[in-house]
Design a protein around this nucleic acid. Structure first.
Length: 380
DNA sequence: TCCTCTAACACTTTTGAATCGC
DNA sequence: AGCGATTCAAAAGTGTTAGAGG
């Protein structure tokens, strides 16, 4: 598998990190599949198209998991969190900061369709989140993950022991993210290099790569009768929608990003919710509870597994979140979150200890991660 | 004027039902 | 009858582009 060779490429990086594209906590190990492809995009500045009706990601998220207990049931989920607190614009062939980010849209979690399944099932083959879709429609009723255009996000993956989706709220969980999966959401591609890379790797784009149909389509557009609208509620959506959870917005790591202290993601806190809660649209999810019940106290651990970050946005402060080694290649360190302190404490801790210290905690978190519920009781 | 978003477009890939053979 | 392999039509998904709208 590609991550094997890839991980070797980072072994020279101090301080003797694990594989750059994987995270191991205790005996559980998560690896980003197609990491090389992700890095190819990341080097340029990954863009993901979001549409009103939902657009799949490309590259899509796929991870392999090992170290689970074979006969224990697990639920594996994915969500998106803001990478920073800025809004961007594409200007003169690069991304520039264009102001503060908009309030976070309703935060949704995509549950892998196989959930729940036994550890042996999850470890049998890489799990793909291919069918997950991104949308900019805050009123989306099909369970797609809602993002704001021109803002940056990264996916997080949650693993939790649970016999059914209904028991997630009380289950322990573990969260992992991969920096090379950070992307800018956009309604249209801005960077032509990204477009070219996508066309080269995405088979669905062949129709445009080989057809040369644009001039024809332009001339014929007005003459053709409009094709029947494709059903918005397609079979994928039907399949996926029950797997989508909605919960309270996550605490944005933007504050860390602004400080260049983002080696860890802050534990999810029961703070700063007033504005975010106003952004919720409860009717769109069957799993939404009244706001007063959505106490936000799921403290989680998250590990950012660093990757190559040659790509630099216009605003350099943004990427101080990912440590760069002296030779420009990523420093492959595992980031492990401390137990959920108060927000201020967590920030202080990050500043005090700096980026690399978290590696020391890796061994100790096999026990820690069983202590913190992913959803207190707010997701249903 | 600039920027963002949407819908239409042609083509390829994927999906799933139907059919066939063992 | 059951199962696996094959076929094929329909649906899904893709990036580009013009035009609308703020």
């Amino acid at each position: 598998m590609q991550h094997t060779s890839d991980s070797k490429s980072h072994l020279s990086m101090p301080p003797s990190p694990p594989a750059a594209d994987s995270y191991q906590q205790g005996s559980i190990r998560m690896t980003l599949e197609n990491a090389d492809l992700w890095k190819s995009f990341h080097n340029i500045g990954t863009e993901m198209i979001i549409t009103k009706h939902g657009r799949r990601m490309f590259p899509h998220c796929s991870i392999s998991v090992s170290g689970l207990q074979p006969f224990v049931n697990y639920v594996i989920m994915m969500d998106m969190v803001p990478a920073d607190s800025f809004k961007y614009k594409w200007k003169k062939e690069q991304w520039e900061v264009a102001g503060k980010a908009e309030p976070q849209p309703p935060c949704r979690t995509y549950m892998h369709p196989d959930s729940p399944a036994t550890g042996s099932h999850w470890m049998k083959q890489p799990l793909s989140f291919l069918r997950m879709k991104l949308t900019n429609n805050t009123l989306d009723q099909y369970g797609h993950i809602i993002l704001h255009s021109m803002q940056r996000y990264y996916p997080r993956f949650h693993v939790t022991q649970a016999d059914s989706p209904y028991t997630i709220c009380w289950a322990p969980f573990q969260t992992v993210s991969f920096p090379e999966t950070t992307f800018t959401a956009a309604t249209a591609y801005q960077n032509p290099r990204i477009t070219k890379l996508k066309i080269d790797h995405n088979p669905f784009a062949k129709g445009f790569r080989e057809g040369g149909t644009h001039s024809h389509s332009k001339s014929c557009r007005s003459k053709r009768s409009p094709p029947p609208k494709r059903a918005v509620l397609d079979r994928n959506t039907l399949c996926n929608s029950p797997s989508i959870l909605q919960r309270m917005p996550l605490t944005s790591p933007s504050a860390e990003a602004e400080r260049g202290q983002v080696s860890t993601q802050q534990p999810l806190k029961a703070v700063d919710l007033s504005a975010s809660a106003a952004e919720q649209d409860p009717p769109e999810s069957l799993h939404t509870e009244p706001l007063e019940l959505q106490e936000y106290d799921y403290s989680c651990e998250e590990q950012m597994v660093p990757a190559s970050v040659p790509y630099q946005p216009y605003r350099s402060v943004e990427y101080t979140r990912y440590p760069l080694s002296s030779n420009g290649v990523d420093a492959a360190h595992t980031h492990v979150h401390p137990p959920p302190p108060p927000l201020a404490t967590a920030e202080h801790t990050a500043q005090q200890h700096g980026y690399y210290r978290h590696a020391h905690h890796r061994g100790g978190h096999a026990a820690d991660w069983s202590q913190y519920p992913l959803f207190s009781y707010s997701c249903w």
